[in-house]
């Protein structure tokens, strides 16, 4: 791999009160690759993505996208950089005041501009949302429903559709398969791999699901006690040789990671 990584993080630190959630994270994500981050519940995986998105301001460190530091640049530049990222939230975060089609249309209109720099018209966005629904394996008629009428799996798919609608260069997935049945999980993973390939995007995915991690990821890292304690190929997750990763991926009770009372 050559040149600057798409995303480059150095010394990222974030505490909430006394609790140090991120403690000096270094991470390079090369353009066009998928990075999987695993780690226990509450280890700060979502916080890491939120820092990159600018939803949480870190205490220290740098976050670069294409070599430009998000934290020191102007707010207009930061907005422009963050606009390149599409995010699938852990719970979908669909706008429940809008129909499914309008949710996806919102994603389209937020990011896409025609030749003259204008937003798509509402009608055109609605029209195109049908195609995007098909890409995530849903019938365009689903567009007429409201998010509350969908099952969890369908909500995930619509969330995915909204995230990819603007064909972002960078995609974040926060636990895309949690709470889904194994087949639906595999389907969503397939969709993610598909989208990343088709868009040529760079992706970071958070997951607890080892099967999913190996399907989605090229690279992988494990977050523990605020640090990335292991980095390697996603295909090596099950036989990493690292006792902590081994314990986690095989779900053993005994090992270097001790259950502790959460603060």
């Amino acid at each position: 791999m050559s040149g600057t990584p798409k995303i480059r993080i150095r010394g990222l630190t974030k505490s909430f009160g006394e609790k140090k959630v991120l403690d000096g994270i270094d991470l390079d994500v090369e353009a066009g690759t998928s990075y999987v981050i695993i780690g226990g519940s509450g280890s700060g995986k979502s916080v890491l993505l939120r820092c990159i998105l600018g939803l949480i301001v870190p205490d220290e460190g740098s976050i670069e996208i294409d070599g430009e530091d998000l934290l020191t640049t102007t707010s207009a530049r930061r907005a422009a950089l963050v606009a390149r990222i599409g995010m699938l939230f852990q719970n979908g975060a669909l706008f429940d005041s809008m129909s499914v089609a309008d949710n996806i249309g919102f994603g389209l209109r937020a990011k896409l501009r025609d030749g003259a720099g204008h937003k798509l018209s509402r009608a055109e966005a609605r029209e195109r949302s049908g195609d995007i629904l098909k890409q995530v394996g849903l019938d365009p008629s689903v567009g007429l429903l409201s998010p509350s009428e969908l099952s969890g799996g369908m909500q995930k798919r619509v969330g995915l559709a909204r995230a990819i609608a603007g064909t972002p260069e960078i995609l974040f997935f926060d636990e895309p398969t949690t709470g889904l049945d194994p087949i639906m999980g595999a389907v969503i993973d397939g969709l993610i791999v598909d989208c990343v390939k088709r868009l040529g995007s760079t992706a970071i995915a958070i997951t607890h699901d080892m099967a999913s991690a190996r399907r989605i990821g090229d690279q992988a890292a494990m977050l523990y006690h605020g640090k990335l304690v292991w980095k390697g190929l996603a295909s090596n997750l099950m036989n990493s040789g690292d006792p902590m990763v081994d314990q986690f991926t095989h779900g053993r009770r005994e090992g270097p990671i001790k259950m502790e009372l959460r603060r």
């Binding site: 939120r50 998105l53 600018g54 939803l55 907005a79 963050v82 606009a83 990222i85 599409g86 995010m87 939230f89 852990q90 719970n91 975060a93 669909l94 706008f95 429940d96 005041s97 919102f106 994603g107 937020a110 990011k111 909204r162 603007g166």
Partner: peptide, 19 residues
């Protein structure tokens, strides 16, 4: 309405959709 949007991450989603 806005509180529900906050606790279900819809407000964060708006932000990530350049709004």
């Amino acid at each position: 309405e806005i509180g529900t949007m906050r606790v279900t991450d819809q407000i964060d989603a708006l932000y990530t959709l350049s709004t």
